[in-house]
Write a protein that binds this DNA or RNA. Structure first.
Lengths: 347, 347
DNA sequence: CTTTATAATCGAAGCGCTTTGATTTTTAAT
DNA sequence: ATTAAAAATCAAAGCGCTTCGATTATAAAG
């Protein structure tokens, strides 16, 4: 019978003493190891563990095995010095956690403050994670190159592998932007404004480029005053939309960089007495849960962020476990969701 | 000069060899330890570390110190078997990460699947975290008691300490519900419906109880058909609102369990041709970022979830670091935000 | 110059596991 | 019974740090 009480946690030594077997045998049983074990022995050891309420120490195990079973996740910090969990990151995280929970990995937030180049890589070098998932890093930081030069397995979300040889998962932003622009143009709009999100995010740049390109293909001259840069937020959408709609010749449609911007733009139009979609069409990107509940419901792009999070983590796990992953982009296709906020121009 | 290249990570032994000092001195320098060190010695050691690109192993350090520097966070699982990151948890997480990043702790997600009693405490017993934050645990599970019986430092969000002796942080739900009900009653409403969220969450129960109590205090008879239980989601809000509004004598106001429910209810009213706030007032709870951007803007309760997350983590850190924390509730006060979705009844 | 006290550094013993070559049993085959 | 092969178990050497009593160098005091 056991001698020590529940004062201190039992170790594998205690189990050895209690069961009468050696450390190595215990360990072998614990991990369903490769060496054969007599059924009776296994029983006795398991019984001793139960008796002592033994639970192996993750750290000791990690030290010995040289792996933590922890995967890090780093969200791009754009707005302020602190981390921002918005609905985008929440959706990614949701997918990540789903996969993590079934694959036996823990997810740890890396909280590297990164302003320009001031981030510290300490958290990546202390071997506290077996790999890292970087979500939407800003383009004006050399974090990805720096991380890529470490030995750490790395997977990126929203970071094209052309920029650095890193496996990545993302939605096809080019195609998505084309869907939106195509929809607006098909409706007959010629004066289309664009409200950009953070200029230092890949997605914002792509959308803006496609916007220009589509206008060009439609033979429409690009008007610089129709493109305003801001952030991916309702506030920014509101402000920039007001500015856009105050122009002498305002656009008849707005391609918002994401749904939050679109929501802000809708509010701005309402405040200015402009009806949607009567006098102004608005299209967003992301299909946030509330997009369908707006008044009118928002035309937008459905982006499978949860699935992206899942896929990204699967990829990372493969890398961590040694599978050779090519540094290519896994692209998900967005889907155009036409709702009430867009209609033909009214002239 | 260094002999081994960047093939394998340098250890403290390498630093000792390179600098010519002993392990203990290196360690003392590394941690700004208590023993005095000659400035020149410190310099030489630091130099050796730089030369070797040395970074201490978090696991080895953890094993020796018997602490991981990791704090776990567990979000209540209510809907399905998987973890759900909604805007509530995102806000809490935001606050948690903010504090974590400045206090030098890492945050790890615990992903215990818990359906009824089927959760496993393995992740809590492997000493991979120094403490745990449990957010909005369901009332129909004995997770909190089970965790409390472990030695692990524990702090809860949205779990009254009366139920179990655990330090907790929350918003004053009773007061909040009174604010909403008071507002609706003050406007003159007598037929008020209530759309509940998940029945197994503390907050839902409290709101419902206060709802009844306020009606009682106002001398209004409680009508069972005016209270519908669902989940904290737009979909649920939509469905239950339709049901409520189809009643022979529908309510003139709805107290929604949270903003999502309110959003769904607004949509339902729109679909049924019921004007807000003309024929129906709707009030929510939480003040989600989009509440102000709805049409009409939603009257709701501002809940400081980010600050709650911050405070909860601060509390947990105090516990982990040995400060004696009483098992009391730290209550934040919600604030009534009156917007366009509520008005006097129209009769 | 000793003697003391103090500063600076060292050594060795853990922390709780895994790994694997070596040893002891057991089983199967002759 | 005898022996080789296979099965079961053991022992010892790490993994990379921290801790703290012990030892040595240095400075202050006599």
């Amino acid at each position: 019978m056991s001698e020590d009480d529940s004062k201190v946690m039992a170790t594998i030594y205690d189990v050895a003493k209690e069961s009468g077997f050696s450390l190595s045998t215990i360990s072998n049983v614990l991990n369903d190891g490769p060496r054969p074990v007599r059924p009776e022995t296994r029983q006795r050891i398991l019984e001793a563990m139960r008796l002592l309420d033994y639970h192996p120490s993750a750290m000791a195990r990690g030290l010995a095995r040289q792996r933590t079973n922890n995967l890090g996740i780093l969200f791009g910090v754009v707005e302020s010095a602190s981390i921002v969990i918005n609905s985008y990151s929440a959706a990614i995280l949701q997918g990540v956690l789903t996969v993590a929970s079934v694959s036996g990995y823990n997810i740890t937030h890396l909280t590297t403050p990164w302003r320009g180049k001031e981030y510290s890589l300490a958290q990546f070098r202390d071997r506290s994670t077996d790999g890292v998932l970087v979500v939407a890093p800003p383009t004006d930081s050399d974090l990805i190159p720096a991380l890529a030069s470490l030995k750490l397995p790395l997977v990126a979300v929203s970071w094209p592998p052309e920029r650095e040889s890193v496996p990545s998962v993302d939605v096809d932003d080019v195609h998505g932007a084309r869907l939106i622009m195509g929809h607006l143009l098909d409706l007959g709009h010629r004066r289309i404004g664009h409200l950009m999100g953070h200029g230092n995010l890949i997605s914002a740049g792509v959308r803006r480029a496609v916007y220009e390109q589509c206008l060009g293909e439609a033979g429409i001259a690009m008007r610089p005053e129709y493109v305003l840069t801001g952030t991916y937020s309702t506030e920014s959408g509101y402000e920039n939309a007001r500015r856009l709609l105050s122009l002498p010749e305002p656009p008849t449609a707005i391609f918002a960089g994401n749904d939050e911007i679109a929501f802000g733009a809708m509010e701005a139009a309402r405040d200015m007495g402009i009806s949607i979609p009567g006098q102004l069409s608005i299209a967003g990107v992301d299909d946030r849960p509330l997009a369908a509940y707006m008044n009118p419901p928002l035309t937008t792009l459905r982006q499978p962020f949860v699935r992206i999070g899942e896929e990204a983590l699967r990829l990372l796990i493969q890398r961590v476990e040694g599978a050779p992953i090519p540094a290519t982009a896994h692209l998900f296709q967005p889907e155009l969701v036409v709702r009430g906020s867009t209609a033909p121009p009214n002239e």
